[in-house]
């Protein structure tokens, strides 16, 4: 950079000019947010500490983490078992998890939901619209 209002342009460096500017702005904004946060805390004094909790009160641990883990496993299953089997399994388990209790009715609902969705998605996407499935 020659001075503040001129940017040196070199063909081989075109790709890093803009990212550099963006990163600089991000850092400045980030620093301002952090500064403002601490400024507010100091101003309010330590007597009134603002509690920040990431999760809401009484959040549903099993449903949140369960669905996150299932989501993570699903792509692996698709690569291993193919679309049909893995989707039926995934749908069954996740519907059951969301209902939250193992009863005859819940099992039945989950199974119906799993089979119906998998078949409809497979038929509509894969057969009618000819879209590649995993």
């Amino acid at each position: 950079m020659e001075d503040l209002l001129t940017v040196e342009l070199t063909f081989s460096e075109y790709h890093i000019i803009f990212p550099r500017i963006i990163i600089t702005i991000l850092l400045i904004l980030g620093a301002m947010i952090v500064f403002r946060y601490f400024y507010k805390r100091v101003k309010q004094g330590s007597s009134k500490k603002r509690e920040f909790s990431f999760f809401m009160a009484n959040y549903d641990k099993s449903k949140l983490f369960g669905s996150a883990i299932l989501l993570f496993l699903y792509p692996f299953m698709m690569e291993l078992l193919g679309f049909l089997i893995s989707t039926i399994l995934f749908m069954f388990v996740i519907t059951l998890l969301f209902i939250g209790k193992v009863q005859k009715k819940a099992l039945f609902t989950s199974l119906t939901n799993a089979l119906a969705t998998t078949f409809v998605v497979w038929y509509v996407f894969g057969q009618v619209f000819d879209i590649t499935l995993p």
Partner: peptide, 25 residues
């Protein structure tokens, strides 16, 4: 009930994302 709808949505999202560039995991 949402427990019926959301699983369907996840599967459709996954299929859609996979298909968009013709099969990229």
């Amino acid at each position: 009930p949402k427990y019926i709808i959301f699983p369907i949505i996840i599967v459709m999202c996954a299929v859609g994302s996979y298909a968009i560039n013709n099969g990229v995991m």
